[in-house]
């Protein structure tokens, strides 16, 4: 059965602020689902959207799918339970930087570590929006907010680096304003068997406006970001003349044609490399030293948690002589009173 984005739109009024980056993510996901359904043969009722607390966590209400708007930080744990209980479901966790990197940090890293087959979409606006403007674990050093009137004195998390550290099998990054790219990485995430973490650099128009503007501004975006595609050279720039090379143990941005650099010197992106060393470096690239990496940075095959749980149950059950409770109650050390 073929679906259209309309099939995934609920009748609920979307209550995000006008200009919020979340609208674009919603649109991209609603566009991605028909494509995913077709590619993977998923029926409409198989989708479950789970969220925690925060602006982005309103997401499930706007989807005409099964949805669970849970409590702060716990969406990854709830999504894990859903997927383990019923591995045939397509489980999506919609979360923010406060929800999944502060209060829910523990669940996030453990979901990734287990490689449970869920898709986690992390809306990163580097601020607490729903509580009206406090700094988050991804706020840049020195960010002035209501709870940091003199600037933060905390190192921010890099979600990609965190995913690599937890031995993640899939990490992608996109920009809210890049609707097409967002849709593309959502499809990639859905196709991946294992925990797929998608970071969306998203704008909070009210409390942290233009936080990603330095790279997302249409005029400079092509020069300050790089869209990575597996098997393709790491080339970027308005004129497609810039690229990345390895300089010693670091990545370096170069211009093709300058200092004897040719296209052949440019690194080819290998998202499927098991060793995450280069992926980690790509995740950590920051403007102005380097372009910010977008697209699927890492996508490697590994066994998923939900499959292993199911297989172990099946394996043990086939070997066992105990098939029902009456068998079990009478197994082991028992005695008869006449």
């Amino acid at each position: 059965m073929k679906f259209t984005p309309q099939d995934f739109k609920s009748d609920q009024e979307v209550k995000w602020c006008p200009g919020c980056g979340d609208h674009a993510v919603l649109a991209a996901v609603q566009r991605a689902l028909p494509e995913i359904s077709e590619a993977l043969g998923y029926s409409h009722e198989r989708y479950v959207f789970v969220s925690g607390i925060g602006c982005s966590s309103r997401f499930p209400y706007y989807m005409k799918t099964y949805g669970f708007h849970s409590i702060h930080g716990r969406a990854a744990a709830i999504a894990t339970g859903i997927k383990v209980a019923n591995p045939t479901l397509s489980v999506w966790e919609m979360t923010g930087d406060g929800d999944s990197l502060a209060i829910g940090g523990n669940h996030l890293i453990h979901a990734i570590r287990r490689n449970i087959d869920i898709n986690i979409v992390l809306f990163n606006n580097r601020i607490y929006g729903l509580t009206k403007g406090q700094y988050s674990p991804t706020s840049k050093w020195g960010t002035v907010t209501k709870t940091s009137p003199f600037g933060t004195v905390e190192h921010p998390f890099n979600p990609g680096a965190l995913a690599m550290g937890a031995r993640g099998t899939f990490f992608a990054r996109t920009l809210d304003v890049e609707l097409q790219l967002t849709q593309e990485v959502m499809v990639q995430a859905a196709k991946h068997d294992g925990t797929a973490l998608v970071e969306v650099l998203q704008n909070c128009v009210i409390f942290n406006d233009k936080t990603h503007y330095i790279i997302s501004d249409r005029d400079v975006r092509a020069d300050r970001t790089i869209v990575l595609r597996h098997g393709e050279p790491m080339i970027f720039g308005k004129n497609k003349d810039k690229g990345l090379i390895l300089d010693g143990v670091r990545l370096k941005a170069v211009t093709i044609g300058e200092n004897g650099i040719t296209r052949d010197d440019i690194l080819i992106h290998n998202a499927e490399e098991q060793n995450h060393g280069i992926h980690m470096m790509l995740c950590e690239m920051e403007w102005p030293e380097l372009p910010v990496a977008l697209g699927v940075i890492r996508r490697v095959k590994d066994r998923t948690y939900d499959d292993m749980v199911r297989d172990q149950v099946t394996e043990v059950a086939t070997k066992s002589n105990i098939h029902c409770m009456n068998d079990m109650l009478r197994s082991g050390d028992t005695w008869v009173v006449e």
């Binding site: 479950v48 789970v50 744990a77 709830i78 894990t80 339970g81 019923n86 523990n106 453990h110």
Partner: peptide
């Protein structure tokens, strides 16, 4: 599922219940 903490214990159970 031996979870990462007590909260995940109940939350995975809530997820499984929902499913």
């Amino acid at each position: 599922l031996q979870c990462e903490d007590e909260i995940a214990g109940i939350c995975t159970a809530i997820g499984a219940s929902y499913a």
